[in-house]
């Protein structure tokens, strides 16, 4: 018999949504929107009351900063002691350098790469930790929120376009919107360039849009799958004699999906940062 009073869809939506509450089962805290933090600007209603995702974002940022700060200190100490890098610090150094060399410099170039490395490295590790926090018990993935991914994507858009503007100069940058088409000159070429303008602008906007939805979709979908599989337990939990089998099957499936989610957490951080790096690199090498 199916237990109908549990609305899995409602739980699912609620779980992945943002909230003014933190729930660690042994410790719960709840708050309400602060009226003084709400304001309207340019017709958009802003509410700066911290939410669950804000809290987890801050936690992710704090964890990341502590981790990297410790790594830096340990590395400097090991270097000062002339001992070979070892343990945690060495692993983190290798990880950071992999991001720096294989994601940033490999795509942006020897010359411009190091300037963008801090941004991309922060981006990668921030998304990674935010993703992984969502997999922890009582955790929430801030990257499974459209607002967060939109903010990151808008930031990527500005970084890409401004880097192009500074690198290519105003004239060179306008070339990326109104391209000079090979083999076309005169009035015809000019008209074609102007006609290409809207398409190029759309192309520039679509890339971060894809970044935003890719990250959001991947993180949300994983949580949906896990919650749905857990939901099986509640839906079929009162089947006499079969509950243990349902529970075991559901838990096994969730374990597998969790493993997959761990990979997805890494892959999505990688994908977001490498695409940003590639787009910056394309701007840098535009002629």
């Amino acid at each position: 018999m199916i237990q109908t009073e549990v609305d899995i869809g409602e739980i699912l939506m609620h779980h992945t949504a943002d909230a003014y509450s933190l729930d660690f089962s042994f410790f719960q805290i709840e708050w309400h929107s602060w009226p003084w933090a709400e304001f309207s600007l340019l017709g958009i209603h802003f509410n700066l009351t911290p939410t669950k995702h804000v809290v987890f974002m801050v936690v992710a940022a704090a964890l990341l900063f502590l981790c990297m700060w410790m790594t830096g200190r340990l590395l400097e100490k090991q270097r000062a002691g002339k001992t070979a890098p070892k343990g945690f610090a060495n692993a983190m150094e290798a990880f950071v350098l992999w991001v720096r060399n294989d994601i940033v410099i490999a795509n942006i170039g020897e010359h411009d790469g190091p300037r963008f490395a801090p941004y991309i490295m922060t981006l990668f590790f921030f998304i990674l930790i935010a993703n992984v926090l969502g997999l922890l018990p009582w955790g929430a993935a801030a990257t499974g929120n459209l607002g967060v991914t939109a903010a990151l994507a808008i930031m990527a858009l500005f970084t890409i376009e401004l880097s192009g503007l500074f690198k290519l100069g105003f004239k060179g940058y306008m070339r990326t919107i109104f391209p000079s088409l090979p083999g076309m000159g005169g009035v015809g070429g000019l008209m074609m360039s102007v006609a290409m303008g809207p398409i190029e602008i759309l192309g520039k906007l679509v890339k971060p849009f894809a970044l935003c939805f890719r990250l959001f979709g991947n993180m949300t979908a994983g949580h949906f799958v896990i919650l749905t599989l857990f939901g099986l337990i509640f839906m079929f939990g009162n089947l006499e004699g079969w509950r243990w089998a349902i529970g075991a099957a559901s838990a096994t499936l969730v374990l597998g999906v969790m493993g997959l989610e761990l990979i997805v957490a890494f892959v999505q951080a990688y994908v977001f940062s490498i695409i940003t790096a590639v787009l910056i690199g394309m701007m840098m090498h535009e002629h």
């Binding site: 939506m13 609620h14 992945t16 949504a17 943002d18 909230a19 003014y20 509450s21 709840e30 708050w31 309400h32 929107s33 933090a37 958009i44 209603h45 802003f46 509410n47 700066l48 009351t49 911290p50 939410t51 669950k52 995702h53 804000v54 974002m57 801030a142 499974g144 929120n145 459209l146 607002g147 967060v148 939109a150 903010a151 990151l152 808008i154 949300t220």
Partner: peptide, 19 residues
């Protein structure tokens, strides 16, 4: 529910600022 938002698909401008 604290009344923060309707679901995972809502885009909260405040959160963008926070991010």
């Amino acid at each position: 529910e604290g009344g923060a938002s309707g679901g995972p698909f809502t885009l909260e401008p405040g959160l963008i600022i926070w991010t």
